[in-house]
Design a protein around this nucleic acid. Structure first.
Lengths: 245, 245
DNA sequence: CGATAGTTTGATATCCTTCAAAACCTGTGG
DNA sequence: CCACAGGTTTTGAAGGATATCAAACTATCG
């Protein structure tokens, strides 16, 4: 299934017509190597991208070398919805692994959305859930210990990848270096390494070769005090909700 | 001028008709006392609010007492655009001071936006700029020292309030307690106090009685390595940009 | 006037950073 | 096949920033 369809289907099932409209709109596909900078801070905001395969991250780099990873983009995630309303980009976007993306023009996206209101809603929903994830990251960095924050990040990745069928049991592709992980949770690469080692020592994870295995999901969730609600992955139109309205 | 109009006018000047349409749509006004919880985590997302006067903040509270303030809302800021697409709220919203707000139904807002496309764009822009601020907060908490982060937050407040004409020179209303400020930059109330004292000692700020004065904007900006670009407050349709397109 | 919230202070503990270097891994060119 | 370069992981030692704990002080308010 098309990655974007897969992603948006979490929000609401899409009709065959909607599915093919999406595939059609995402025709302009290209590939980039690992480390490729897709967009740079201060660039004029022209690219509307959808990640199809691989992984990318938003980040900001500081004065004296510090770097903060702001969010991780997984297959099907929209990269910069609506960004053309801003005068310039406030952060960069780079591919963490060799990735495939689709470029779509502002106009074409608007066309797609106005033809298919449910697609508009689904894309808005995807954007809202990315914002929710950002908020949780702020909690991660501001309130949790390094160990707990790292475990939390790994749990998040597991749930997000599982939702788009990209996990194999408790094992999944995780191409980020320990430095990258550190930059995501606001710690030093050296400390990131020690944290990863501690997780290994506790038999909670196994990691290497660009893959991560969660050995004890329960153990990780307890350590992180992880509650997947913020990912908004439950079916939006669940029976429980329907009963309320 | 209506606070929402003032806020949205930063994006683009609004016609008299658009101005009165906004005022009309925001007719359902109510007041809340300081500390009033406007919406709670896990609540069903029904309220669409606009802050008219005062100050509010989004926050998450943890297991064992920790609290992270996720963002500050100033007059004219939309509170929860689009949130009805989510099954439940992932964070709480509370008023920091006695505040006035407008409640507007999902349908009425959609009506307003579809009648006036420029208003839709302006609201989207306001949402995008709030997201940008959130990203900078992540940098604040993850990468800057407590002193630098606190200075950064104060600079941000100054610029945001200035943009909506709520500063008096370098002095403005800042009703947050030192604890609140600490929860915004991810530090302890005790440390927050020491940081504030250090800023005072360096003659960079004066603070008290619910007001903050920046004594040296340059000094604060240097300490924070502050660049207001992420606030996206420059006129969107500036001569410089027009020349490009 | 006592109660409650916010601010301030001091002493001590701990988490995380910094610095420096070694070990390891992978791809490249000779 | 080896040597080498560059990036990543690992280790150790030491310092610094922030947390924690406990208590005093200040202001505000009914």
């Amino acid at each position: 299934m098309h990655p974007v369809v897969k992603r948006l289907s979490i929000f609401a099932p899409l009709s065959a017509e909607e599915v093919s409209a999406i595939s059609l709109a995402m025709a302009n596909v290209f590939s980039v190597p690992a480390g490729h900078v897709l967009a740079r801070e201060d660039d004029p905001p022209i690219n509307l991208l959808y990640l199809l395969e691989g992984m990318a991250y938003r980040h900001k780099t500081l004065f004296e070398g510090g770097r903060q990873i702001l969010s991780l983009l997984l297959p099907g995630d929209p990269c910069d919805v609506g960004i053309t309303l801003l005068a310039r980009r406030d952060h960069s976007l780079t591919a963490a692994v060799p990735s495939r993306l689709a470029r779509i023009s502002d106009a074409a996206l608007e066309q797609l959305c106005s033809n298919y209101p449910r697609i508009r809603a689904a894309i808005q929903w995807a954007t809202l859930s990315e914002e929710s994830i950002s908020r949780e990251w702020l909690v991660n960095v501001g309130q949790r210990s390094a160990l707990s924050a790292m475990a939390h990040l790994m749990c998040e990745l597991y749930y997000r990848l599982r939702a788009i069928d990209l996990v194999d049991g408790l094992n999944f592709a995780m191409p980020l270096t320990q430095s990258d992980l550190g930059d995501a949770v606001g710690i030093t690469p050296v400390h990131s390494n020690r944290v990863v080692q501690e997780l290994r020592r506790r038999k909670l994870i196994a990691m290497g070769d660009g893959r991560l295995t969660i050995l004890s999901l329960q153990g990780m969730e307890e350590l992180a005090v992880f509650d997947p609600g913020y990912l908004h992955l439950e079916a939006r139109y669940s029976p429980a909700r329907r009963a309320n309205s």
